[in-house]
Every structure is written in structure tokens, then in C-alpha cells.
Simulated assay, not measured.
Amino acid sequence: MSFLDKIRACNTWNPRDFRPFLLDGERIGSLRPGAVEQFRRWPAQFQVATDAVYWSGAPADFAGRTAVLAEVVQCLAEEGVVSHLHGEPYPVTAGHREQARCLIDRAAAPFFGMRAFGQHLNGFVRTPRGIEMWIGRRSASRRLYPRCLDHLVAGGLPNGLTLSENLRKECAEEAGMSAELADRAVAVGAVTYCRDSERGLKPDVMYCYDLELPEDFAPRCTDGEVETFYRLPVEEVRDLVRDTGEFKLNCNLVIIDFLIRHGLLAQSDPEYLTILRGLRADLP
């Protein structure tokens, strides 16, 4: 295994396997052939063509488009085509969150191949022995990646909250962290990837943060999503990422980015430049 293997695992998709989902000429999603056929059920809304699915009957307003998608998603969820509903509204956009054309339930975004946004925080402590990172183990009850290793704080970025508001919320829920401490997190960029998953296409953007924590900090999960925490030497975290499949898949990318920025992945590594490029994949 290698760092590059982890990057490739998050970027396994073939554009020829997906058909664009278009709204007013913008590609807001990417559909598998099986998903494409579902849209024939709503001919007043969607035009299924050989090159794309066009949302030709979309209402002109934000609320109207959101309502139409909610009805479609509810129907798909009731029939089991979409596995479940999450209850968090995500922006439907071909670009930034602020350019949303409407909203969709978080759990349905991969079915439509719609762009999703999240936040991942590297919580670490500087010690006489070197950097140590706080790592969580996901609860066995999690629908996705049960009992895998995860960041100290990581979560989706729903519509209606700013980056700082959502980060405070996630820090409180997942690590029992005060808003004052959460606000010390340093925004360090973003990682992107596009993965063909069993639920559909995931063209995702993860905003990344570093937070240097005090020596006496001890995380406390308040929402039941994490079953235990570990404080590990960064070299051990590095080896777990490179050599095992212990981490939730997309966490690997954010940790690799951390390793690069802190000089823990050598520039002399023959895959160094390929790894750098791989952390910022182009999104459809």
C-alpha cells in the first residue's frame, strides 16, 4: 500500500459511466444509467436524452426547485431506490456553496451525483516527543464505515450555516469542544475527490483545518458517533494511513495533506508531486 493508493481509491470513476444532469445549461449532477431511467417517471420535469438528463421543467425560483426535488427524493426513498433520508439540506451547485440553485437531502446527493461539502479538522498536540494527533474510532452503529478510524472532528456542511458556525457545532458534538477553542482552528485549504460509490457519484469538497490543542485537552463525544479516542504519535498515524485500511476513506486524504504541510512526507519521495496533484481532483 501507499499514500497514492489511498488517493486513487477516492478517485475511482469513469466519466463515460455517467450522464450529466443539467439545469439551465449547468451540470449540477452526474447520473448512472440506472438512475437515468428513474427520471422518465416525471416527463413534465425531466427530459431524458442520449447525452444528458435535462431538468427542463424546473421552476424558476429556488424554493420551487427545492420542493420538486424533495418530492422526487421522497418517492425514491419510499421505494428504496435511495437508501434513506438524512434530514440535512445540502446546496445543489455546479460551483461554490453560495451558488446554490436549490437544496437536496444530504443522503440523496450521491444518487444524483451532486457536489457535497464537508469539514475535517486535524486536532494535534505538540509534545517533547513530537506531534501527536487525536483520532476517533467511529461507533459500530454508524451506517457508513462503522468502527473505522476518523478525524477528531469531521462532518458534512449543510445549507444555512457558515463555515465557522458549522465547525463550532461539529466540534461541540463530536469532541465536547468549546466555541472558544474551536475558533482557534486554522483554515488550511481544501481537498477534493470524485468517487464512484455504491450510493452513486461523490464529487466532494472537504475544507481542512488544523487545531493545535493544549496538552490537557481530552475529547468527549456528545452525539454518539464516536466510541473512543486515541492520541497517537503522528508517525503512527502516518503508517496507519499508508499501510492499512483502518481510516474512513476520505480521512486519508486530509491526513496526507497534513503530513505534507508539516514536513512529514519528504519532497524526495518519488510520488511526491503526483500525491500533491491528487489531493485536488477536478470535479465534474
Rank of each mutant, 00 (worst) to 15 (best):
T12N: 15
V72I: 15
S2P: 07
A172C: 03
C221L: 04
E98W: 00
R138F: 11
A281S: 12
T244A: 09
N14F: 03
V36Q: 05
W42Y: 14
G189R: 04
R27Q: 15
P20W: 00
A175V: 00
E271C: 06
V205E: 08
D223G: 08
S268Y: 06
Q45H: 14
D282A: 14
E236N: 04
M206W: 11
E236W: 03
Y193W: 12
P33Q: 12
L253G: 01
L31D: 02
D282F: 11
T50R: 14
D196H: 12
E215L: 09
H84P: 00
Y272D: 05
S30G: 04
F46M: 03
S178G: 00
T93W: 06
V92I: 15
K6V: 10
Q45M: 10
D17H: 14
R16F: 13
C251S: 15
R27V: 12
P33Y: 13
L264S: 00
P59K: 02
R8A: 08
H151M: 15
D17G: 13
W13F: 13
P59V: 01
S139I: 05
E78H: 09
V92T: 01
C221M: 01
Q45Y: 11
Q267A: 10
R32V: 11
A116H: 07
R97Y: 06
T274F: 12
I7D: 03
A107C: 08
E227I: 09
R168F: 09
L181Y: 03
V72A: 07
A49L: 15
R16P: 05
L264R: 15
C148P: 07
E78R: 15
T222F: 12
W42L: 06
P15M: 02
F217L: 03
S139L: 09
L273C: 11
P15D: 03
P233D: 07
A77C: 13
S178M: 11
A185G: 01
H84T: 10
A94C: 11
L23Y: 02
G113N: 06
I135K: 03
L211V: 02
V92F: 04
R184M: 13
R8D: 13
S56A: 14
E236Q: 12
L259P: 00
P128H: 06
G80K: 08
A100G: 03
N252W: 11
A9C: 01
V68I: 15
Q99C: 11
A190W: 02
S141L: 14
K248Y: 07
E78P: 01
R142I: 08
I7W: 09
V254F: 03
A44T: 13
A107V: 07
W55R: 04
Y193L: 09
S268G: 05
G263M: 06
N159L: 00
W42R: 09
L249E: 14
E180W: 10
R261L: 04
D239K: 03
R97W: 06
V153R: 05
K169A: 13
F62R: 06
G136C: 10
F46G: 02
L149D: 01
A218L: 11
P33V: 10
R101D: 01
W13M: 08
R27H: 08
G34Y: 08
F112E: 03
E79N: 01
D24A: 15
A175M: 02
P270A: 04
R65P: 07
T12R: 15
L240I: 09
F247L: 10
F124R: 09
F21T: 00
R106S: 09
P284S: 07
E173K: 11
H86T: 10
A67M: 04
E215A: 13
V36E: 10
A70S: 15
K248I: 15
D150L: 08
P128S: 06
F62G: 04
